[in-house]
Write a protein that binds this DNA or RNA. Structure first.
Length: 416
RNA sequence: GCGGGUGUAGCUCAGUAGGUUAGAGCGCCAGUUUGUGGUACUGGAUGUCGCCGGUUCAAAUCCGGUCACUCGCCCCA
């Protein structure tokens, strides 16, 4: 069968699934708003540099997962693989560096050229929060608390655990990187192929290798923790204290290293074991160096992003959309009147669906399938008396109501 | 990018020592009910068996390729 299909790794969001997505997005938006995060939207594509510079050329996202192309003018563009770089670019572009901090929320599609899997798509959707221009551990704690709040409001918090690590400041990382390389060089031949390559390009990433032999080698590797500057250590301690004070549970995970180069200090992920290989449901961290890689001034920032698909997969099914009313005419001659009645009922705020095809039985069946709360039935009889029959679809009780009194009658019965 | 699994009706799936008209359940359509659904009963429609090629008198079934989905690796949301 050669029926036309959507592009690999993309999919249509049909009503039931789109409803779940909307639920995730709406809850997140509302939760973020309680923290003072206002929604923004940036373009879906940017100059390629916006992503390649901050994320790091050696990062997997940029090296092999990016949708990059030249437009007709020969300009190098990239479909956004994530939201933080765009947000920071927007801060700089709009001169908002004078009015900090900014608390932003966003939701929208992201694009990564990857092998599709459950909970992993080439076009997927993220919600995210960015707190830009706020240094200090309380900023990190606030962002994490915001993530907790959103996961809680979606009822999935208890199905995740919060993993926490610090990547230190650049001074800490530089000294640690040297020590780590020295240690790992001794095992170079035993490391997995990927890790051998990373040893040259991005040694810190070896820390979260999933290879068993790599893990063994790493057991005795020097820890970043012992190479932190006293400032970096104090920062991390303050984050943990703030989380404890807010009763937010966390586990320290020294092997948590996030894939994007711009992170520094705190890195965190909310991980679940219920989505197969795609365990990370919400992740983020501090990115104090990001602004400068985009040509902006030094600016602090922390943020997170969460996958809408993954959250929708974790959350339970949402009730579908139900109309208040279904309108069905008993005779052809009544159709126009019911059409008009539907329009006026919608004007007064009800959701109403007109049914046009089939006999009464078919129409009732359709009304019941739509899960309409009430069916408004009328033929020439009722209309002649200036009224309609209103049937409660749940208990089957049917009453005749004057059209002039219909709106208030329904109002009364529906608000109950 | 690398490995494993799967691809038969709208959906979930049966169907192997290759054999003639390819099945079930759900759903859909119609009727029992010519102005009344959700239950029940009766009847009906639906497939180039993913695609291309090969073996064979004969392929949904065997072989090769290809595409898609899926699980894992990698990486992340």
């Amino acid at each position: 069968m050669e029926t036309i299909q959507p592009v690999r790794g993309t999919s249509d969001l049909l009503p039931a699934e789109k409803a779940r997505h909307n639920h995730v997005i709406d809850s997140a938006k509302q939760g973020a708003a309680q923290f003072g995060y206002a929604e923004i939207a940036t373009p879906i594509f940017e100059f390629t540099d916006v992503f390649s510079r901050p994320l790091g050329a050696s990062s997997d996202v940029v090296a092999k997962e990016t949708y990059s192309f030249e437009d007709r003018g020969g300009t190098g563009l990239t479909l956004r693989p994530e939201g933080t770089a765009s947000a920071m670019r927007a801060i700089i572009s709009n001169g908002l560096t004078q009015t900090l901090p900014q608390r932003w929320f966003y939701a929208g599609p992201m694009f990564r050229y990857e092998r599709p899997q459950k909970g992993r798509m080439r076009q997927f959707h993220q919600i995210g929060c960015e707190l830009i221009g706020q240094a200090g551990a309380l900023g990190d704690a606030e962002i994490i608390a915001c993530g907790v709040h959103i996961l809680k409001s979606l009822g999935v918090l208890e199905r995740t655990s919060l993993h926490l690590n610090t990547l230190g400041d650049s001074e800490s990382r530089d000294s640690y990187r040297a020590v780590l390389i020295r240690y790992l060089e001794g095992y170079r031949k035993s490391l997995s192929e990927d890790s051998q390559r990373r040893l040259d390009t991005n040694p810190l990433r070896i820390l979260d290798s999933k290879s068993e032999t790599d893990k063994e080698i790493l057991q005795d590797a020097p820890r970043l923790k012992t190479h932190l500057t006293s400032e970096a250590e104090a920062h991390f301690d303050a984050v943990k204290q703030a989380l404890d004070a807010a009763s937010i549970a966390w586990v320290e995970d020294p092997f948590l290293v996030r894939g994007l180069d711009y992170y520094s200090h705190t890195a965190f992920e909310f991980i679940t074991d219920q989505l197969g290989a795609q365990g990370t449901v919400l992740g983020g961290g501090r990115y104090d160096g990001l602004s400068q890689t985009l040509g902006g001034p030094p600016l602090a920032g922390v943020g997170f992003a969460a996958g809408v698909e993954r959250l929708a997969l974790l959350g339970e099914d949402m009730p579908g959309q139900r109309p208040d009313l279904a309108l069905l005419a008993a005779e052809k001659t009544a159709e126009a009147d019911l059409f008009a009645l539907g329009c006026s009922l919608r004007d007064t705020g009800f959701s109403a669906v007109n049914l046009y095809t089939g006999n009464m039985g078919k129409k009732m069946k359709a009304a019941s399938k739509l899960e309409a709360r009430f069916a408004i039935i009328a033929g020439d009889d009722e209309l002649g008396r200036g009224s309609v029959s209103v049937r409660n679809m749940q208990d089957g009780v049917q009453t005749e109501v004057k059209i002039s009194a219909l709106a208030s009658w329904l109002e009364n019965v529906l608000s109950r």
